[in-house]
Amino acid sequence: MKKLDRKQIAARLARDIPDGAYVNLGIGLPTLVAEHLPKDREIVLHSENGVLGIGPRPAKGMEDGDLVNAGKQPVTLLAGGAFFHHADSFGMIRGRHLDYCVLGAFQVSVAGDLANWHTGAPDAIPAVGGAMDLAAGAKHVLVMMEHLTKDGKSKIVERCTYPLTGARCVNRIYTDLAVIDVKADGLHVVEIVGGLSFEELQRLTGVALKYREPVAQ
């Protein structure tokens, strides 16, 4: 079994974003998805700080401090891009205009609860940003994360032990081991990384997974 690396998870996720979609990529790992979006599709990237139509990273020396994304990194604007203020930007999110958002996660529960903003540690400084708005507002909430924690525990859990970002909000999970849909009747495995059996994935994940073996052609 060969786990996907971060770029491969991003590339796998990017394949599922359809032509014409309006998409918000969360800060951190999800930002990688931008570099893997299929070139033959027009996909409009949104950022919380008031921009639609984000283009590639600017060349060295071409950065403009007034043109940044939600991670405060310099970006460029595509032809057709637009600027707007923060309340309009979150109106787009909350008002269900955004087709997809991609978020990182500490934990996702069987019910689709998402925990990604706070470890709950008493001395931690909490910071939530736009994560709760995205979780509550986007039409499809996609999570991108490593399947296991550094000490080998599943990040897909029966119940989140970390504080929630949103309840019952996640639609699909992309990890280095599998793609999993969150549905009303539980977790459905869509794909497993090559060389890993469903039984092994089930053992690593801990919570009950459903899987229909692909029929050999």
């Binding site: 919380e48 923060h86 309340a87 930007s89 909350r94 910071a127 940003g129 736009g130 994560a131």
Partner: peptide, 9 residues
């Protein structure tokens, strides 16, 4: 601490 969209609204 306020979610960013709630802060804006």
């Amino acid at each position: 601490l306020v979610p960013q969209g709630t802060l804006a609204e």
